[in-house]
Structure formats: C-alpha cells, structure tokens
C-alpha cells in the first residue's frame, strides 16, 4: 500500500500565460521556468506533502493548453477537490476574464469545491491589479486569495500547503465534495479521495 492518508485532486484554470504551468512546476519540482516542450505528454503532477504528521498526496492537474481558445473539457472539472483560478497581476485582461471562468466553474465543478483565487507574477514591476482589488474579488465570490510568484518561489509552497491543510480539515469534518465511492476505475488504479481508514471512505477498485 502506498503511504498516504488522503489523496486530493487540485485543478488549475485561468487564461493562457498567467503562469499556471510554472506554479505547478515550481511546487512539484522546484523549477523555473519549465523547459520548452517539457509539458508535452505531462498530464498531472503528483506531490506528497505532510500536514500535522499526515501524508497527503496532491494530484495537480494542468489545463493541457485547452484554455487558450476557451475549450476546456467539462470532464477536467469532475471530481476536483480544489480549484485554483489564476490571473496575472501585470495583465488587466487576465483579471477581466475571471467572471467568465467563474461561470464555467459554476457550471461544471462541484459547488463545494474549494476555490482559490491566485494573482501570480508579483515579482513583476508593472503591476496592473492592486492587491486589494484581487482580494475584494475573491471575497465577493467566496474564494480564498493569495498572491504568488512562480519565478521567485513566493507563496507557492504556501498556496499548496494551505490547500492541503484546508482539504484535510474538510475531510475530517466530512464537508468535502462527496464523490460516489463505488465507481469503477477500469485501469485498476486508485483514484480514491479522502481517508481510507478513519473516514470510512472506500477506495475505488
């Protein structure tokens, strides 16, 4: 048996170029920038973290470029536990698109999914979105908020660790989005969520 107590699916969305892939790479591999072409064939990244002495496996899904022409598959949002909506603090248009993204999220993601708004690239000098504007937006839409820099590794670790901690807390209080436990994953891999011991959630078989 693999040694982890929780497995959570985290998905990233937001306009092309805001730094989603960099955030994932920074967190999972400590790299910036990710080399050209490296994303081909990369589906999701996995990192196991520790919160309060519990091992938590994060499965972090990137958009595979489908956001470029606004064509993310609905199935991408399925079974997500946390959703990170990213904009670029130096680009007003990426902020202006947030309502569109929220509409899509509303439509396809569970309404209990943990939502985090992230303003990325705070290392840049040419900021267009003041922190409080992002903060306000997040508050109005019931989202957590954080500003990051994938380049300088600012708040990236914290972003994912807080997600892990929050999801673990929710799992303990049974507030997580409940996905049907008796589904069949035909490749025989476990894509189970939650705690296989104390929560009574069974693993997919």
């Amino acid at each position: 048996m693999e040694d982890y107590k929780f497995l959570f699916k985290v998905v990233l969305v937001g306009n092309a170029g805001v730094g989603k892939t960099c955030l994932v790479r920074r967190f999972t591999q400590g790299l910036f920038p990710p080399g050209q072409g490296a994303t081909i064939g990369v589906d999701f990244m996995i990192k196991t973290v520790e919160v309060e002495n519990e091992k938590i496996k994060l499965q972090i899904w990137d958009t595979a470029g489908q956001e470029r022409f606004r064509s993310i598959t609905q199935s991408y949002y399925r079974s997500a536990h946390a959703l990170i909506l990213v904009y670029d603090i130096s680009s007003q248009p990426t902020f202006d698109c947030l309502p569109d993204w929220l509409r899509e999220i509303e439509e396809y993601a569970s309404n209990k999914v943990l939502r985090i708004l992230v303003g990325n690239k705070i290392d840049r000098e040419d900021r267009e979105i003041p922190t409080h504007v992002g903060e306000d937006f997040a508050q109005r839409h019931g989202m957590y908020f954080l500003e990051t820099s994938a380049k300088e590794a600012e708040n990236v670790e914290r972003l994912f660790m807080e997600i892990a901690a929050e999801l673990m807390e929710q799992a303990r209080c049974k507030e997580l989005p409940r996905y049907e436990q008796n589904t069949t994953s035909i490749n025989g891999k476990t894509t189970a969520i939650g705690d296989s011991n104390s929560c009574g959630c069974s693993r997919f078989t």
Binding site: I40, G41, V42, D43, A64, G65, Q66, R68, F69, R70, S71, T73, Q74, S75, Y76, R78
Partner: peptide
Amino acid sequence: ELPQCFCRLCAVFGGVYCLK
C-alpha cells in the same frame, strides 16, 4: 464524457483545441 477523455489526451500531447 468519453470523447472528452480522448480530447484531453490529444491536448496533453500538443493538440490544439478550439470550440465555437
């Protein structure tokens, strides 16, 4: 959902997607 699974794989390997 199933066609979308194949589309995701296509995109992961560099396929360009454009709805509408």
